[in-house]
Design a protein around this nucleic acid. Sequence first.
DNA 1: TTCCAGGGAAAGC
DNA 2: GCTTTCCATGGA
Length: 317
Amino acid sequence: MNKETIINKIIIQPDGIFDLKETLFSGQSFRWSQIDILEPYHATVIGKRILLIKEITAGYIEVLCSDDSINGMSISDFIGWYFSLDIDVIKALPENFCADFPEVWRLLKPYSGVRILRQNPFEIIVTFMCAQGIGMHLIRRQVSMIAERYGEQIVLDTPQGDLIFHTFPTPLALASADPSELSRCTNNNRVRAANIITMARSFESDMLTPACVLSDDCPLVTVLDTLCTQSGIGMKIADCIALFGLGRFDAFPIDTHVKQYLWEWFGIEAAQHTLTGKNYRHLQDEARKILGNNYAGYAGHLLFHCWRKEIKKMKAF
DNA sequence: TTCCAGGGAAAGC
DNA sequence: GCTTTCCATGGA
């Protein structure tokens, strides 16, 4: 059993002026959880290191970590990269966006602090394979159960007592999992469990990793096509993997909420029709005309949260 | 009981 | 190739 202690306390001051407060952990960050020690923290495990966010204000982020580096980067550099603090997607929107959609612009500006995290590709693939046709709550539960059952336990030694964390399982751990046992972690969905195992074996044998590793050089469509060869990964999930796990901020996933705001906010008529494969691509093209190409997915994610919270009045993130 | 939840794949045209 | 139908599960 690994026992970790917090050895680092670091203050990060983003270059841009983001109001990260409250919005930082929105959405795709399924493995972030609130924990209670003396005051609210947010905690997650990156590789084998534990990361705690102690405080976030408009000007800085205070971070605690169990090591002085992660993935070969200093904690400060890692945080900047991990939270994509270099991206100001509001500024990256096309010039005429504000003039063309003033009401959306007004609603969207407070969401500029929503960050897309550069999360681990394998973890994101598994996470979004768990995300078909079910609610956020159940997605989170599946990911937690998978980590608890197949990940490595890490204990954090704190003055207030031990806290238990789990690393996300390696591809090998899931590749060798028993389907019926894994299905207990996937809402008893055996097909999903089998798909994850098959994917993990592909990942292990480098059938998937080239597209992931080389994604920066790889045309987006090639990355997506490679992902879609896996059973259990369709177009939407492939886009989510590219966006949240491969740093492809041009990938634009379309789900039921995105489809709704594409019609309600931007008047794209095709968004009233069924999401067939052809219509899905068509809607992406239309969205890129409005949001620009390079950060279409990033902007879409802000719009996604803005829509859910401001219009649909949903509380859960 | 019914219907929805950040879809996917098989069957059908 | 594109569209419609079926599938699967938990929770409100």
